[in-house]
Simulated scan of single mutants.
Amino acid sequence: MTGTARRGRPRSEDADARILGAAQELLFARGYDRFVMDEAAVRAGVAKTTLYRRWPTKDHLLVALVAKVQDEVPVADTGDVRADLTVYLTAIATGLNRMRAVGRTGDRDDRSAGMVAELVAAAARHPDVGDAVRGLFARRNTLVLALLDHARERGDLRAGTSSTVLFDQLAGALYYRLLVTGEPIDAAYVRDLVDHALTGAAATPHPERN
């Protein structure tokens, strides 16, 4: 979330980038509980009013940081749906594991959901943050849904396969592990997840392909 448009002087993209960069370093080093907005402003070299005008609370800033991280993950559509989904979901899993470790000290290896749990809580605390979170995921998911639509159009998935339901199965499993069971989300799990999901959705081979 980047805040609502305001009258007057236009926002500086450079200031936005510096704030988000400083905030990300601070958040990943300190964790959500020890993150201080004013310190982020100092690190970014901007006035505190500049920061709060863009993101009034650290909940709002958290959403902007998650958007930044997600936008750095490409969604490739090479024509090999299994490989494309595996690469994309592995990158997402890597990001989730990194957010799980935010603020963790020493060698502690607990099953906390870390910053993702804070994001869910922030969405519940602030209706506008909730709207921003849903908008963020809807925008990103559009790219993956298009990938699955193309796979269905090529005949790689059954004609009646719902791209939305299939992606819910894939993404939902990752977040279930993160938020509920605390089990590892590693590359091997992602491969198995994609294999099982696509086995159920795969189109029946044409006779001439047998």
Rank of each mutant, 00 (worst) to 15 (best):
A201F: 04
L85R: 00
A188N: 12
G103M: 08
S12Q: 12
V194F: 07
G103K: 05
T142V: 03
L119N: 12
R158M: 02
D168N: 11
A203D: 07
D156M: 00
R100F: 12
D84T: 03
R152S: 04
A121N: 07
T4S: 13
A202H: 03
I19N: 12
A29E: 15
T204L: 11
T204A: 10
I19D: 05
R30L: 14
M99T: 06
L179F: 09
R30E: 15
R177Y: 07
D33Q: 14
A124T: 08
V120D: 12
D16T: 15
A151Q: 00
A117K: 07
G8P: 05
A44Q: 06
Y88G: 04
T181P: 09
L65A: 04
A83F: 01
R18G: 06
M37H: 02
G79P: 08
F35P: 01
S112V: 10
M115R: 02
A17W: 02
P56D: 03
D192G: 15
D168M: 08
A29L: 11
R98E: 14
G155M: 01
S162L: 02
L27Y: 09
T199R: 14
T78H: 11
D168V: 04
R191S: 14
V144C: 07
W55H: 13
A117G: 13
Y176M: 09
D131M: 10
M99L: 12
N210C: 07
R209M: 14
L148E: 02
G103A: 08
D192A: 15
H206E: 13
R108E: 15
V133F: 07
P10S: 07
G45F: 09
T199A: 15
Q169A: 12
Y52E: 05
D128K: 03
R111D: 14
R140Y: 07
A44L: 11
L51T: 01
G8A: 10
R34P: 00
L178Q: 13
A197C: 09
L85F: 06
G103V: 08
T49Q: 13
A197Q: 10
A83T: 02
A173T: 11
E25V: 13
A171W: 06
R43H: 07
F28V: 09
D186A: 14
A123T: 04
R154P: 06
G155Q: 05
A201D: 05
A41Q: 10
R158D: 11
Y175G: 01
E13V: 10
A22N: 09
G160D: 12
L89R: 02
G106K: 03
Y52Q: 08
T78M: 05
T57D: 10
Y175K: 05
P10V: 11
E72A: 15
R125Y: 06
F28D: 15
